[in-house]
Design a protein around this nucleic acid. Structure first.
Lengths: 219, 219
DNA sequence: TGTACATCAGTGAACGCGCGTTCACTGATGTAC
DNA sequence: TGTACATCAGTGAACGCGCGTTCACTGATGTAC
């Protein structure tokens, strides 16, 4: 909030010093208050305390700023997922459970990033950096699925890519429908985390991961 | 396109005759071309061929029109799901598979309705009619889960509500991430339908629905 | 069947507003020598 | 160390535009009698 500013919020000099960062922060704040469509270039500039022409030194247009926000969001997301997975410690299944919670946790804790990443309507072909960052995040999930799959007997291993896409879809659906912090959330009689954990358990059961071996739960 | 209009697209009289419908159609067209945030009241009026003040006779504001679109979307959605389910004929599992395809099919065939329903950021508390319509659509899915669950032995029946929420989340996640007709779609090496069908099979397996009985697939 | 009248569903002009974008400009910073 | 200069990162005024919204109005429709 105070790059290159004095104690009263005034800028110290003619140059902002960190306008790029300030614009990203402004965009996040505006997105979280008014939705992914609810911020404008001019308003972001105002928030950052610069003239409406200043952002053009850093971004071609609004979408380009949005893409930068989405990029950073995916980077943070990938880091959060990787940290939760923690290379599968202490056990792959415990780590996998944490991974799912991290997905939901990110959606709840960073709704503005989440919006920019998934709901801003950015054309991924126009912003390959966003696509790359998204791929990196997905790679964490896929890697963890590969580890999990490798704990099964070789003749009963499902494709890790498919499994990763299933879990991603499940977590994403739950996050989108029930895990938001805003008014669009739908009410259900359990937490998103509980819902995801139950679904994942059933799904893994179906793949042949069971307590002590393959087969349906008998409890 | 031609309510109350002659062959040249001119209105027949002073009154439009069906402005409400025309505004909804205009909103859908604008949403499908420019995203859920990409339509304005004025533009919808222009599309419908009336003055910018005319929509105020029918809708309080833009959100109120959007809510009407979302409502109709959920009604069509519920009808599409009910039709696919067809009361579980010929078998609950075949009907359930059709239900999942119908979810994805709706997202692909009606991206504008889908956007208005799930991505418009409407506050559901402010528009209870939308919430009710959404609940009706979900009720179809829940009802089908209840039928499916009832085919299991009584001591091994999962909660139908939980199952319905899981399948909804899964289908919704797949539709959101991979099943869109627009540029925000992510590329995967299979169709959304294949992905959903595979996930559902695994999930049902995990719940104890198996080919010829409970237990993991052995093939 | 006419007629008077209330109501409905539009018009079109007007307004203030904020946005996106451009332009010539200027203060600040970095660097070659 | 000083100086000249290029470059960077801002300013602020200006523009055209489309939006949301209002207003008094008017043409069309429905209905009581």
């Amino acid at each position: 909030m105070s790059w290159n500013r004095d104690d009263h919020g005034r800028r110290r000099g003619y140059h902002h010093g960190n306008l790029r960062e300030a614009l990203i922060h402004a965009a996040l704040e505006l997105i979280s208050h008014k939705g992914p469509a609810g911020f404008t270039f001019a308003e972001a500039a105002r928030h950052a305390g610069v003239s409406p022409a200043a952002p053009y030194r850093h971004y071609r247009d609004r979408d380009s700023l949005m893409a930068d926000v989405a990029c950073r969001g995916f980077e943070r997301f990938a880091a959060a997922l990787a940290s939760a997975w923690d290379e599968g410690r202490p056990t792959p299944s415990a780590a996998f459970d944490r991974l799912g919670r991290a997905y939901l946790g990110f959606a709840r804790a960073e709704p503005a990033y989440f919006s920019a990443m998934f709901e801003s309507g950015l054309d991924l072909k126009s912003f390959p950096a966003v696509q790359d960052a998204a791929d990196s995040a997905f790679a964490v999930l896929r890697g963890s699925c590969e580890v999990l799959v490798s704990t099964l007997p070789p003749d009963r291993r499902p494709p890790a890519l498919m499994m990763a896409l299933h879990i991603w879809s499940l977590a994403h659906g739950i996050a989108s429908l029930f895990g938001r912090g805003d008014a669009a959330r739908r009410a259900i009689p359990m937490t998103p985390e509980e819902l995801l954990e139950a679904a994942t358990l059933v799904y893994l059961q179906g793949l042949g991961f069971g307590a002590g071996g393959p087969g349906p739960a008998q409890s």
